[in-house]
Amino acid sequence: DVEPGKFYKGVVTRIEKYGASINLNEQVRGLLRPRDMISLRLENLNVGDEIIVQAIDVRPEKREIDFKYIP
């Protein structure tokens, strides 16, 4: 289970102007929005990149997770 405040290694699977889709595994994925990137710009991400993200909002009833990137 993903817990708010914990850090996870994820893989960038899609990049859109509203954010990047991050997969932690086949069943768990979430969104990294541009506003939640401290020192990383969306255009510097590539599909397949592995990054460390922090879960900031977990809504299991909607199967949604928001991530934050902290270098």
Rank of each mutant, 00 (worst) to 15 (best):
R35W: 09
A20N: 02
N46S: 15
I22K: 02
I22A: 01
L42G: 03
L31W: 14
I51E: 00
D1M: 14
N46T: 14
N46W: 09
P4Y: 09
G30R: 01
E50H: 15
Q54L: 15
Y69H: 04
V11G: 00
I70S: 09
F67M: 03
D49K: 02
T13I: 08
R14T: 07
I38Y: 11
Y18G: 09
D36W: 09
I52E: 05
Y8L: 03
I15V: 09
I38T: 11
F7W: 11
P34S: 08
T13E: 06
K68D: 02
I51D: 00
K68G: 13
E26N: 15
M37G: 03
N46R: 15
I38K: 08
Q54R: 05
Y8A: 00
R33P: 04
S39D: 14
I15A: 01
I52S: 06
E61V: 07
G10W: 06
Q27D: 13
Y69S: 03
D49V: 06
N23R: 14
G48M: 03
R59F: 06
R29I: 14
I56H: 06
D57N: 15
N46M: 13
K62N: 10
R41S: 12
V53K: 00
G19Y: 11
I22D: 01
D66F: 15
V53W: 01
L31R: 04
L40Q: 05
I38V: 13
G30C: 11
G5S: 04
V11P: 01
E3W: 09
L40A: 06
I15Q: 00
R63Y: 12
T13L: 05
E3M: 14
P71N: 06
V53G: 01
I15C: 06
E61N: 11
Q54I: 12
Y69P: 05
V2H: 04
I51N: 00
F67P: 02
D36M: 08
E43C: 12
I22N: 00
R41K: 14
L45I: 09
L40V: 06
D1I: 14
N25C: 10
V47M: 05
D49Q: 12
M37W: 04
I15R: 01
K62P: 06
L42I: 10
M37N: 08
I22P: 00
R29T: 14
I22T: 00
L45G: 00
V28L: 13
D1Q: 13
Q54G: 02
G19T: 06
I56S: 05
R41C: 10
K62E: 11
V47Y: 03
I22H: 02
G48C: 07
K68F: 08
R63K: 14
Y69N: 03
E43N: 08
Y69T: 02
P71W: 08
D66Y: 15
E50S: 13
I51C: 02
P4W: 07
Y69A: 02
Y8R: 00
I70K: 05
K17A: 14
L42K: 03
E64Q: 12
F7V: 05
I52Q: 04
I65G: 02
K62Q: 12
M37D: 06
D36F: 07
E16Q: 12
Q27R: 13
P34L: 09
G48T: 01
E61S: 11
R35I: 09
K9W: 13
P4H: 06
L24Q: 01
D57R: 15
G48Q: 03
N23V: 13
D66V: 12
V53P: 00
E50L: 12
G48E: 02
L24P: 01
K9N: 05
T13N: 04
I56W: 08
E16H: 15
E50V: 15
L31G: 01
Y8Q: 00
R29W: 15
E26S: 13
K68C: 10
T13C: 09
N25P: 03
E26H: 12
K68R: 15
G5I: 02
E3I: 15
R35T: 10
I38Q: 10
R59A: 04
F67L: 09
I56T: 08
G19E: 03
R29C: 14
L42V: 05
M37Y: 03
D1L: 14
F7I: 06
E43I: 07
V12A: 00
I56C: 08
D66C: 10
Y69I: 04
I52A: 03
D66S: 14
E64T: 10
R59G: 05
I65F: 07
D36H: 13
R14N: 09
S21H: 15
Y18T: 11
Q27G: 14
Y8K: 00
T13M: 09
G10D: 01
Y8S: 00
N44Y: 10
I70V: 13
D36S: 04
E26C: 13
N44V: 07
I52C: 15
R29H: 13
A55R: 03
V58F: 07
L32T: 01
Q27W: 15
N23W: 15
Q27P: 05
R35P: 05
V2N: 01
D1E: 12
L42D: 02
L24Y: 01
V12P: 04
L45W: 01
I38A: 10
N23A: 15
D57L: 12
E3H: 13
A20I: 12
E3A: 10
Y8G: 00
L32S: 01
N44H: 13
L31Y: 08
G10N: 01
R41Y: 09
Y18H: 15
E61W: 10
I38F: 09
L32C: 07
E26F: 12
I52D: 02
D36V: 05
V53S: 00
G10T: 02
V47C: 06
E64I: 11
I56K: 11
E64C: 11
D1W: 15
R35K: 14
F67N: 03
R63F: 13
K17W: 15
D1K: 14
Q54W: 11
K6F: 07
E16T: 15
I65T: 04
V2S: 02
D49G: 01
M37A: 08
L24C: 08
K17F: 11
I15F: 03
G30L: 07
E26T: 11
I15M: 03
E3D: 05
R59H: 08
Y8P: 00
I65M: 05
K68P: 03
V12Y: 15
F7N: 05
E26I: 12
L31Q: 06
V58E: 03
R41W: 07
D66A: 11
S21P: 02
V58L: 05
E43R: 08
N46L: 11
D57V: 13
L32A: 01
T13Y: 08
P71D: 08
G30P: 06
P71E: 06
V11E: 03
P71R: 08
G30K: 01
E43T: 08
V2Y: 10
D49Y: 06
I65H: 04
D49S: 04
L31P: 03
Y18C: 09
R63V: 07
V11D: 02
I38R: 07
E64G: 09
A20P: 03
I52N: 04
T13K: 04
E3Y: 12
S39M: 12
I70P: 05
V12I: 12
S39V: 11
V58Y: 10
A55E: 02
M37R: 01
Y69L: 06
G48V: 04
K62F: 11
K6M: 09
R14L: 08
I65D: 03
V2P: 05
V11C: 08
I38N: 10
G30T: 01
V47P: 05
Y69Q: 08
L32E: 02
R63I: 08
K6W: 05
G48K: 00
F7P: 04
K17E: 12
V12H: 00
V53L: 07
V12S: 00
I38M: 12
M37Q: 04
G19H: 07
R14W: 10
K6P: 01
R59D: 10
